[in-house]
Simulated assay, not measured.
Amino acid sequence: MAAEKFPVQVACRVVGVSESGYYERLKRPPSERAVRHAWLTDLITQVHAESRGTYGSRRVHAELTLGRGVAVGHNQVELVMHRAGLQGATGRPKWKRIKPDNIATDLVERDFARGGPNQLWVTDITEHSTREGKVYCCVVLDTYSRRVVGWSIDASPTAALVTNALGMAIDTPLGRTTAGGTVIHSDQGVQFASWAFTDRAKASGLVPSMGSVGDCYDNSMIESFWSRMQVELLDRKKWKTRVELANAIFDYLEIWHNRKRRHSQLGWLSPIEYERNRIITVA
C-alpha cells in the first residue's frame, strides 16, 4: 500500500501493524515472495514484448505454463501485469466520426412555422420491410405547406439516398421560386453528415441545420409525416417486393399527399391547393 502512495500511518492502521515494524521490515533482505514477483515481472514483460504487445493475462499465463513450464497461477499473472502496467490488445480501435462544425448547429430550435415556401426544408429517412428485404425512403418536406419537394427510394440507406432526394428538391422547384438561404434541417445521421450531402446543400445556397442526437422533437414535423405514412400506407398490407412498395410510396407522395390529402393545419387543403390559394390571395 505504501508503494502505491498510500500514507504509511494510514496503511499501518488499516492492516493492524505498527509503523516501527513496517520500517524494520524495510531493512530486511527481500523475501522469497518478493524475489519471485520480481523474477515473474521480468519474465512476463519478456513474454508480453515477444507477443508484440498483444497478449493479455490469459495468453501470458498459457505461454508461461505450457510454453516455458513455469508453475504460476492465473491470478498471480494478472496481478503482476497490472502492477507492471501491461495489458493486451483489446479489439479494434473505435474511431469517432468527426462532426462537421458547419452543420452541427440547430438553426430551427423546434420552430417549424414559416411564412413562405422554400424558407425551411426538413428531411429524414424511414425504412419498411418486404419479403425481398427493406426499402429505404428519404423525403424533403417544405414546412410552409407540408409539401414533399424531394424524395428518393433505394434498397440501402446510403449518402446517395439523401443526396438524390435533396437534388430533386433543388433541381425541381415545382413552379416555385427557389432563393438562396433555405435552411435544410435533419438529424445527425451519418448520411446527412456526409461530404456528398453537405457539399450539395452548400453549393446550392442552402444552410444546413441539425437537431441534437436522439431527440425526435428536434425534427418533429417530418416524424409526424412518417407516422401518418406508416398508418395510411406502410402498415396496411404485407409487401411482396421492393418494386411494389416503391411504386406505392411514389403514389402516396406525389398523387395522394401532395395533391389530394387534406391537412388540418392547412385549413383542410392539400399542400398544392394551399400554395395556390396563398399565391392568389397575395396577388
Rank of each mutant, 00 (worst) to 15 (best):
239 W>G: 12
237 K>Q: 13
126 T>C: 10
128 H>T: 04
91 G>N: 00
197 F>Q: 02
96 K>G: 02
218 D>V: 04
276 R>I: 13
120 L>G: 08
37 H>N: 14
30 P>R: 14
229 M>P: 00
230 Q>C: 09
101 D>S: 14
167 G>L: 14
43 L>E: 03
95 W>T: 06
281 T>P: 00
241 T>S: 10
120 L>E: 05
1 M>K: 06
141 L>G: 01
11 A>T: 05
272 I>T: 11
212 S>D: 10
140 V>R: 04
80 V>I: 13
235 D>L: 15
246 A>P: 00
252 Y>S: 02
138 C>D: 00
106 D>W: 08
77 V>C: 03
209 S>T: 00
209 S>F: 14
207 V>S: 04
74 H>I: 11
113 A>R: 08
147 R>P: 01
249 I>G: 02
200 R>H: 08
244 E>K: 00
19 E>G: 14
168 M>Y: 13
277 N>E: 12
81 M>P: 00
175 G>S: 07
61 H>L: 13
78 E>D: 13
16 G>A: 13
282 V>R: 03
242 R>A: 02
196 A>D: 02
138 C>Q: 01
34 A>H: 07
195 W>R: 04
197 F>V: 01
29 P>G: 15
60 V>R: 03
273 E>F: 10
212 S>N: 03
117 P>N: 07
15 V>E: 06
123 T>L: 09
252 Y>F: 15
260 K>M: 09
1 M>T: 03
195 W>D: 10
255 I>M: 06
44 I>M: 04
254 E>T: 04
152 S>G: 01
227 S>L: 04
24 E>I: 03
140 V>L: 10
98 I>P: 00
197 F>K: 04
253 L>I: 11
112 F>I: 02
234 L>Y: 06
235 D>V: 02
270 S>H: 05
222 I>D: 00
271 P>G: 05
124 D>L: 12
196 A>T: 03
265 Q>N: 06
65 T>I: 12
10 V>A: 15
246 A>M: 01
210 M>K: 03
22 Y>T: 07
182 T>C: 15
240 K>Y: 10
226 W>T: 02
68 R>V: 07
55 Y>T: 01
174 L>M: 14
54 T>I: 14
53 G>Q: 03
128 H>I: 12
234 L>E: 06
76 Q>L: 15
2 A>P: 00
44 I>C: 11
273 E>P: 00
228 R>Q: 09
106 D>A: 13
82 H>R: 15
223 E>T: 02
37 H>M: 08
63 E>S: 08
143 T>A: 15
154 D>M: 08
76 Q>N: 09
94 K>G: 13
268 W>S: 07
4 E>I: 10
212 S>L: 06
278 R>F: 09
160 A>P: 00
116 G>C: 03
162 V>M: 07
115 G>I: 11
120 L>P: 01
57 S>K: 04
